[in-house]
Design a protein around this nucleic acid. Structure first.
Lengths: 142, 142
DNA sequence: AACAATAGTTAGAATTATTCCAATTTAGAC
DNA sequence: GTCTAAATTGGAATAATTCTAACTATTGTT
């Protein structure tokens, strides 16, 4: 048989780069994301892929998505499902999430920058809130 | 007895403005957030408040936090616990979450703006990733 | 080609954060 | 003081995700 999905070449390449195997499940999951680019949830991807591969399991969909993220083919929108956190600091500000410690630090945002950020919205869009989160590792404390 | 917590006045005021009652639980929850500003989870707040009011329930902590958010005294950091979404669009971009429909749209970010955003980090900080999410309602479609 | 070693998939159980619900308690209005 | 609505409580329910152990497929080796 020929390639079962549309974008298998790029995927196969990236997988090989990471020393991972190409599988029909991975192809179909990636294809589902590329075919309808509406930021689906794992469950939605599961539903779509199932029409083509009825035997696939939800666990596999999660595994494949994780693999695609690790190969830099896919990004996660609501980063790592961590418990919601609460902040009594109301002045608009960003957060820096330190991946070494798990701590979250406030980062001040100049009003000017905030205005510039809101200005990128196409006309017709208006945002009630903007959430800006940096992720990275802080150098070990002095 | 006098006021059991430190910041009860501002809280009482805001609650009154919203037609809500002041309760010891709400005071203690708010106080926990103000006393240690480390963006705690609901569970962490629960643990802290429990030392002062052992009978409080986790459900009440969730309720109080929700109330404080509604009074504009507290902000949520990882907005609404929704399923993680996946995006095959790798070019740096922001997301607009339309609260009317639940849909998520890509928003392009000029490189220049992205650079300006990264520039607000204090020295010593370096971000592997920046997540920018707008939330709002889109006008009904034409 | 057979065969081990490894990687991937599967179903279902387990976990975790959160919400819901029905019953009880509390606070403010009269 | 009593009534009514609001708030709290404990426990059950839900939902997203992760874990586990068994099975399957693929690769490299002989």
């Amino acid at each position: 048989m020929s390639t079962p999905t549309i974008h298998s070449d790029a995927l196969a390449q990236k997988l090989a780069d990471s020393g991972l195997r190409n599988t029909p499940q991975r192809e179909l999951v990636y294809d589902a994301l590329l075919t309808k680019r509406d930021h689906p949830t794992a469950d939605e991807v599961y539903a779509r892929v199932k029409t083509q591969l009825p035997g696939i399991s939800l666990a596999t969909v999660y595994n494949c998505l994780e693999t695609l993220v690790q190969c830099n083919l896919v990004r996660v929108v609501n980063f790592e499902r961590a418990p919601t956190r609460y902040c009594p600091h109301l002045h608009p500000h960003a957060h820096f999430h330190d991946e070494s410690t798990g701590a979250t630090h406030d980062i001040e945002l100049p009003d000017q920058l905030l205005a510039a950020i809101k200005a990128v919205l196409p006309s017709g869009y208006s945002a009630d809130a903007v959430e800006i989160t940096f992720r990275g590792k802080l150098p070990s404390p002095r």
